[in-house]
């Protein structure tokens, strides 16, 4: 097996361990402390925000307009209309103004 395939194999094993590890560790405890509970409840919003904020911070006017419109639509409707509207606005602005 090539060195590349060994790296892929061990990278895959390590990645799988991160995906099952948190659960294996946590399931050893019979009860979850309220602070841990509160922290875990915050995980989705906390992690997902980090995938948005720097991208928006380092973007330009076209992206800011698109994400604002998408955000407002998302707040009042659902994720699908929001996603389609955001994509439409970003494509339109970039092709119109080349920004």
């Amino acid at each position: 097996m090539s060195q590349t395939m060994w790296i892929i194999l061990f990278g895959a094993i390590g990645t799988y361990l991160t995906r099952i590890g948190g659960h294996l560790v946590l399931s050893r405890f019979k009860s979850i402390h309220p602070r841990v509970q509160a922290g875990l409840d915050a995980v989705p919003a906390a992690v997902l925000t980090t995938l948005v904020a720097p991208a928006v911070f380092n973007a330009g006017p076209a992206e800011w307009v698109a994400i604002t419109i998408a955000g407002v639509i998302g707040w009042f409707t659902g994720i699908m209309p929001m996603f389609i509207a955001g994509a439409a606005v970003i494509i339109a602005l970039r092709s119109l103004f080349g920004v």
Binding site: L48, T50, L51, E63, I67, G74
Partner: peptide, 30 residues
């Protein structure tokens, strides 16, 4: 820019959770 839009949609989906705004603001700044 499609993934940031999608992920923002997911963030908004959690807005009913307690302490959502402080968590989002802190994570954004951090």
């Amino acid at each position: 820019f499609l993934l940031p839009i999608y992920f923002l949609g997911l963030v908004i989906g959690f807005r009913q959770r307690s302490f959502w705004l402080p968590v989002v603001a802190a994570s954004a700044a951090g």
